[in-house]
Write a protein that binds this DNA or RNA. Structure first.
Lengths: 232, 232
DNA sequence: ACGGGTTATCGTCATAATGACGAGAACAAA
DNA sequence: TTTGTTCTCGTCATTATGACGATAACCCGT
């Protein structure tokens, strides 16, 4: 029989959203972490997050937290639900079910520390993966990274890391940073320029440092890569 | 600043698990639905589900519900978290965050109706997709089906629909039923027998009706299909 | 027993996609 | 002008796929 037939059991519990926000810097992939200013896990790093309001959608709560934590009004970022974590005891205070979200954004500016003790920072991914995050956030971060890596294979998500206009090399840099591998520039170029609807040629070029100037593209309306780009 | 720093807001709310349980019958894919015996949505069909206990893991709650609803002690089924749904108002009684799970099982026996008014039944997928489910379960079911279809492409999940020993034709039947398409038996055979670690030859064969007997296999330890099987 | 229907399995062939890598184009810097 | 760098286009062998022919090994009806 379904428990739906009984009254909802409303023991003390809370619902939160946690954010795995990735951005790309010159030196590689970074994730947004906050340093906790209160117990539990005082002074430990954690994923940004917060509780869901009584009349708030999960997506809306995630968007609100993203704006609050990055300090930006309009955040142009990809935001999608990752998965939920609800082990009893994951928060020592009370039962907390956390709905994790994955966000991908182009190079975002440093976060100005809030007025309170909690400071946010973009932490290189290797350092963040080393462990020691509060709650079960080590696992959440790992899951978020794996999701991002996997979605690059079969979706056009990589453009979410790029600014409005970008080059093929920029896009390749996304794959190399997120996957942590090297890709052949020629084969990658062939693949992405050959995928219909992925890139829109602006007609202009950009010259950075030495080398032939690269064509500038904007993201097309394609959402999937078919066949996918496979990593080893 | 992170809301983590404030006390968890514990307004009245509940956390539930809902199950999208698929099985395969002779005539195609079916999903487990219950008919509600109480308000809200009295007499409407719904996905089986129930509230998560105070000291219960989300996964444990899903497994418990799966056992309860199918009436089986040991359910050999694939069970994975799908995603969470938390729109305010999705349950008219109170705020309910539902963590949906996807379960895939080999042909399961009919469910003996419980002693109460809520009866469970394996409903053909077309009929279930036609709409009219309680809460937001139309959407949950659609998401679950899409997840199952997608995972068949790049994972060995199809074997979860098969009994201990199965033939290549059985496996192909899974793809055809879930995808709703026809596949070339010869190319499919080449693909699955050529994937290392996917099938373990038992050496025996099975003869059903006319036609050459088919080799019997068990599921190997491969988890991924590389390259994936793509659907149009 | 024997031939026809059916399904499983193996092969063939053209096409598509990929990995590896050569080579020219177009720039900056020495 | 020469050198070095990056972008872009091409070539070629290998692999995977879709389409489909052909054989193997069973059922059944006569």
């Amino acid at each position: 029989m379904g428990e739906w037939q009984q009254d909802p059991a409303t023991f003390p519990q809370a619902v939160a959203v946690d954010l795995v926000v990735f951005t790309l810097r010159e030196d590689g992939l970074r994730v947004l972490l906050v340093t906790r200013g209160v117990d539990p896990f005082l002074w430990r790093r954690a994923l940004p997050g917060g509780f869901v309001g009584p009349d708030e959608t999960l997506d809306a709560a995630a968007e609100r937290e993203l704006r609050e934590e990055t300090g930006l009004r309009q955040v142009e970022a990809h935001l999608e639900q990752l998965r939920s974590y609800g082990d009893p005891g994951r928060d020592p205070r009370t039962r907390v079910i956390s709905v994790a979200y994955l966000a991908l954004a182009p190079d975002l500016p440093d976060v100005t520390p809030g007025s309170d003790a909690a400071s946010a920072a973009w932490v290189p991914i290797d350092q963040a993966l080393a462990g020691g995050l509060a709650f079960d956030h080590d696992r959440v971060l790992a899951d978020g990274l794996e999701r991002a890596r996997a979605k690059l294979e079969y979706s056009t998500l990589a453009t979410a890391f790029c600014p409005e206009e970008f080059t093929v090399a920029d896009l390749r840099g996304v794959y190399e940073a997120v996957w942590g591998t090297g890709l052949d520039p020629r084969n990658f170029h062939r693949k992405v320029t050959g995928t219909p609807g992925l890139l829109i040629d602006t007609g202009r070029t950009r010259s950075e440092g030495p080398g032939r100037p690269a064509a500038l593209y904007r993201a097309g309306d394609a959402v999937g890569l078919n066949p996918p780009l496979i990593r080893d």
